[in-house]
Design a protein around this nucleic acid. Sequence first.
DNA 1: CGAAGTGTTGAAGCAAATCAATTTTCGTGG
DNA 2: CCACGAAAATTGATTTGCTTCAACACTTCG
Lengths: 221, 221
Amino acid sequence: LDAIAATSRRVGPREDLIREGDRPSDVHLIKEGYACRYKMMESGERKIIAWLLPGDICDLHVAVLGEMDHSIATLTECQVAQVPVGTVEELTRNERIGRALWWNTLSDEAILREWLVNVGGRTAVKRIAHLFCELRIRLKMAGRAWDGALWFPLTQAELAETMGMSNVHANRSLQTLREEGLIVLDDKTLHIPDPEKLERYSGFNPNYLHRGTVSRSREDT
Amino acid sequence: LDAIAATSRRVGPREDLIREGDRPSDVHLIKEGYACRYKMMESGERKIIAWLLPGDICDLHVAVLGEMDHSIATLTECQVAQVPVGTVEELTRNERIGRALWWNTLSDEAILREWLVNVGGRTAVKRIAHLFCELRIRLKMAGRAWDGALWFPLTQAELAETMGMSNVHANRSLQTLREEGLIVLDDKTLHIPDPEKLERYSGFNPNYLHRGTVSRSREDT
DNA sequence: CGAAGTGTTGAAGCAAATCAATTTTCGTGG
DNA sequence: CCACGAAAATTGATTTGCTTCAACACTTCG
């Protein structure tokens, strides 16, 4: 599976990979860097609805659903692998791979549910704190974070677009988190001195990330 | 497929079908009535993250993901069919059915994305208007709505839990929609005199519901 | 007929948006 | 290596949408 996605191309920051309405012929996989799903609102603002980290598949949808209902863009510079939809469909015939891909979809969906709860029900400061808890674990799973330090190159405006708040308020919320000593954010690096404290603070429960269930369910079959 | 889900049991309103942390042995299907997915917040409030309408599958997840990361409850009285997880796994081996179920998952996810945009980016009044637009189309697809009239038995408190707002504000927002003549809500029935007007008002774009793509993608295979 | 649940209204308070200006950082070319 | 311009971060003042609290009316149903 990895072999197929071995070759990748470099994509600059802030470039669209796929746009709403497209029916792309390839499925995209992020190998390095951060990307995002987004939708444009009628008001003209961009709403980011998912962060795509190394190892994440961008648009498995198109193999099944047809037209894209949202767009995908890089945030940082990325290494992106592409696999033709036809190849994916062949792979899907293999029960194990099909199941793994389905797991991937369901995992995305679980994150989306938690984001909905997060945006709909927490104050700005806790919302950001919660997001950072998730990011830490997801990056750890991808082998991209160690002892509470991780690469965080997004601008405050991008963070604001993700959390559904103004950039001014994102700024002030970050300051609060810093003052509370919950995070250290500097030089595009995010340190979380006490992850458990941040998790308690934000009401974070990692169960929705279903850590480890891939391998387990693979062994089951 | 329908044959397997032919038998169903009656479940009263406001009953849990599955709880967070469960590993249910059956997959549930709503045949009649309204149900919802929800999560409890640390504050103790319930957040509804999806509405489950007739024809919707509740928890295909468990067949792949294992443990439930959220709960499911009826809103109204429901007819619920249950299919053992094992049977679902067997069915999944059939490529067509597997694909149809996958489509179902992806369709859920698309709705979730739109809800995230909706909650994160629109005012209370437009948020509710948008939700009603979606409900109308989904019920139409399920053969449960005709010329702008549909059954809407939810309380304002339940609506508020869905939209991430206080029940007081849900009440006031509904009044605004009524005053504007965009909806008529009475006797548990929702009338939408001019659906297109409501769609324009709320910035609704139905593309994310992928109407008709099931059959098309089935024919493709 | 009374009690509980649901819907409605008013007033006060708060979180976040908005607007606008200023400072800091960063990338680029001289 | 420094100077410059643009992007990003920060701050203050004001406004707004929404929450909260509290009371009250209406409906539903045993």
